[in-house]
Simulated assay, not measured.
Amino acid sequence: MRHEQAEPTRWIKSTYSGGDGGECVEVAADRSAVRVRDSKERWGPQLAFARDAWTGFLFDLGQGGSY
């Protein structure tokens, strides 16, 4: 399946990502989704979340949700 983004995307690296090349996560939003990727694999796979699902995820993180 081929995916084309609706507009150019600005990727933002997580402030929790280490500067030593360890765990690095980047996120970006476009009209249809919030995307997550490994910053070391920029051309690799991405996860795409519906905007409302991402907002709910962030809310649950802030509430210390139990999983």
Rank of each mutant, 00 (worst) to 15 (best):
M1E: 01
M1N: 11
M1T: 11
R2Y: 14
R2W: 15
H3E: 15
H3R: 13
H3D: 10
H3Q: 14
E4V: 13
Q5E: 14
A6L: 15
A6I: 13
A6R: 12
E7M: 11
P8N: 07
P8C: 03
P8I: 07
T9E: 10
T9R: 14
T9S: 14
W11Y: 02
W11E: 08
W11F: 06
I12N: 07
I12D: 01
T15M: 01
T15Y: 03
T15F: 08
Y16C: 01
Y16P: 03
Y16T: 11
S17Y: 09
S17N: 09
S17D: 06
S17W: 04
G19N: 06
G19Q: 10
G19M: 02
G21V: 02
G22E: 09
G22C: 07
C24G: 05
C24S: 03
C24Q: 01
C24L: 05
V25W: 01
V25Q: 03
E26W: 08
E26S: 03
E26M: 11
V27E: 00
A28W: 02
A28I: 01
A28F: 00
A29C: 15
A29G: 11
A29T: 11
A29E: 12
D30A: 02
D30S: 10
D30N: 09
D30T: 06
R31L: 09
R31G: 06
S32T: 12
A33T: 02
V34R: 02
V34Y: 01
V34M: 00
R35T: 04
R35P: 00
V36E: 00
R37S: 04
R37Q: 03
R37G: 05
D38R: 07
D38Q: 02
D38Y: 06
S39M: 10
K40N: 11
E41P: 07
R42L: 06
R42W: 01
W43V: 13
W43I: 13
Q46W: 09
Q46P: 03
L47R: 05
A48D: 02
A48I: 03
F49A: 05
F49G: 00
A50N: 06
A50E: 13
A50Y: 00
A50V: 05
R51F: 00
R51H: 12
D52T: 09
D52P: 10
W54K: 00
W54F: 13
W54Y: 06
G56A: 11
G56R: 14
G56F: 01
F57V: 07
F57W: 11
L58P: 03
F59I: 13
F59M: 12
F59G: 09
L61K: 10
L61G: 06
Q63V: 10
Q63K: 09
Q63Y: 02
G64T: 04
G65Y: 15
G65L: 13
Y67T: 09
Y67I: 10
